[in-house]
Each structure stands twice: as structure tokens, then as C-alpha cells.
């Protein structure tokens, strides 16, 4: 076997190893994703995080939104998708409300009780 063949074989085996690893990984994910509740929970968490970020972008994030998302992630990991969904929904609502709260006040409106 010459040097060139040897390198070729090495690369081939490396590629195969990578392929096997990828397959194994996606198989694990597939197992989880087989559960429609798991898919739903993951989707809800993604949505909640997006809503939180959007609120934060206008300095409108609320105190506990991030905590709810963290708890939702933990619940999903532990297989309690019902709880994860509930928490994620709560966080998403908060994100949306916090964003609206700031956007609706984009123009500074001085209170009537302060007289100049």
C-alpha cells in the first residue's frame, strides 16, 4: 500500500465515523421528536425566547420572563411537556405584553398632574 492510498483510506474511514456519529445523534433526537408533545414544547419555548428578546430590544423585558423560560426548558428536559408548555406560554405572553407596553409609549406623554 502506498502513502497516497493510505491517506485516502484514512479520510474515508474518518468520513464514515462522522456519518455514523451524525446518524446516532439524529436518531436520539428523532426518538424525542417522535413525541408530538415534545415537539410542541420545544416550539413553544422557541417562541417564548423570541418574544422575550423582542421585549428586551425595547427595554421592555419583565422580571420573571427569563426564569419561566428556564423552568420550561428544565421541565421539557425532565419530560414534563405539559408543564413546559404552560410555562413557555406564560413567558411568551409576558414578552408580547412587555413589548407592547414600551411600543405604546414610544412618544413621551407628560402627565396632566405635572403643571409647567
Amino acid at each position: 500500500m502506498n502513502k497516497r492510498n493510505m491517506i485516502g483510506l484514512l479520510i474515508l474511514s474518518l468520513l464514515m465515523a462522522v456519518q455514523v456519529a451524525v446518524a446516532a445523534d439524529s436518531k436520539g433526537d428523532m426518538a424525542k421528536m417522535d413525541n408530538p408533545m415534545a415537539v410542541k414544547a420545544a416550539d413553544a419555548i422557541t417562541k417564548a425566547e423570541a418574544a422575550r428578546k423582542k421585549a428586551a430590544s425595547v427595554d421592555g423585558e419583565w422580571r420573571d420572563t427569563g426564569k419561566f423560560i428556564k423552568k420550561a426548558e428544565e421541565a421539557a428536559k425532565a419530560g414534563d411537556y405539559e408543564k413546559a408548555l404552560k410555562l413557555a406560554k406564560k413567558a411568551e405572553d409576558e414578552g408580547k405584553l412587555g413589548y407592547e407596553q414600551q411600543v405604546s409609549q414610544r412618544e413621551l406623554k407628560m402627565p396632566s398632574y405635572l403643571k409647567y
Binding site: G60, Q101, Q102, L108, K109, M110
Partner: peptide, 24 residues
């Protein structure tokens, strides 16, 4: 002006601005 706007802007779940408590 940004500081002033912050002072008069309601925030958080309880919907208070600085002004809600420390002025009004």
C-alpha cells in the same frame, strides 16, 4: 431627554413609571 422619558415610562408587569410612585 432619554432620562426624562425613562422616568415617565411605565414598565414591568405592575405597569408603574418612576413618576407613578415618586411624583403622582
Amino acid at each position: 431627554e432619554e432620562g426624562k422619558k425613562f422616568y415617565f415610562t411605565r414598565r414591568g408587569q405592575l405597569n408603574f413609571s418612576c413618576a407613578s410612585c415618586h411624583l403622582q
